[in-house]
């Protein structure tokens, strides 16, 4: 009887360990899942600050799955400019010139409206394990939230950042902080979530700061003012017809 009681106690004591024995692949997959929706619509603004002052660009964005997204800028200087991302290519549309441009390869690394965010950052495909090898480095609390610290090393040279260190929320799998580095460990960019919002039971970043560590006094803050998850979207949104409309 004593032995059975002891086994039960041991089993109960092991439950938290069993629950926390989540693999890095599971964490990454759940992180990707937390960032991917069957469809979404968001409205927001990009605030870029450098030593000359601040620039503000506003946008509307639609997404379907991990591969398709459309961003339309609504601020005066860029009004009507659109970026359509499909698997492997990006189309840009400039309404004043009625010009349709197809981007591939290195062109995706261009800065979006002079901010610290590239086209790749803005519309990146979310299959992280296909692009990176991940290892858990430990745990740390960020803003009162317990996070896994994960280091990811790129499998090929086709990604924007060779090394990423990310802090993933243990409960919501949201990324609270990320450091993007070169192969030899030089820090390029840092991302930090400054605020969150709850949409349909999911915790999502509402205010995110991206700072370019190679530029002095440079910071970009992306603010989401509206976010809808799984709204009904017409598939034709992600087409040339809609891009040039």
């Amino acid at each position: 009887m004593k032995r059975i009681f002891l086994i039960i106690i041991i089993l109960i004591a092991l439950i938290p360990f069993a629950l926390s024995a989540i693999t890095v692949e599971e964490i990454i997959n759940r992180m990707d899942a937390a960032e991917t929706f069957s469809t979404s619509f968001s409205r927001g603004e990009i605030l870029s600050t450098d030593r000359f002052g601040q620039k503000t660009s506003t946008f509307n964005a639609w997404a379907r799955g991990a591969d398709e997204s459309l961003i339309e800028f609504t601020s005066v200087a860029e009004r009507g400019q659109k970026v359509l991302r499909t698997k492997g290519e990006i189309y840009l549309f400039y309404p004043d010139a009625q010009e349709l441009i197809r981007l591939q390869g290195a062109a995706l690394r261009q800065s979006l409206l002079g901010s610290d965010i590239s086209y790749e950052d803005m519309t990146g495909e979310k299959n992280t394990l296909a692009q990176y090898t991940a290892t858990i480095e430990g745990q740390e609390s960020i803003g009162g939230r317990f996070c896994h610290i994960i280091t990811m090393v790129a499998k090929s040279r086709t990604v924007a950042y060779p090394v990423q260190k990310i802090w993933v929320d243990m409960e919501t799998f949201m990324v609270w902080k990320a450091q993007y580095s070169t192969q030899n460990g030089r820090l390029l960019k840092e991302m930090e979530v400054l605020g969150t919002m709850e949409v349909d039971g999911r915790i999502l970043p509402s205010r995110t700061a991206v700072s370019d560590k190679l530029k002095k006094d440079s910071k970009t803050i992306m603010v989401l003012t509206e976010m809808q998850i799984d709204p009904p979207l017409d598939p034709s949104i992600f087409s040339l017809q809609n891009l040039t409309w």
């Binding site: 499909t86 598939p235 992600f238 087409s239 040339l240 017809q241």
Partner: peptide, 10 residues
């Protein structure tokens, strides 16, 4: 007149 034939053709 522009007639779409698919997502990426017209």
């Amino acid at each position: 007149v522009n007639i779409p034939l698919g997502p990426f053709s017209f």
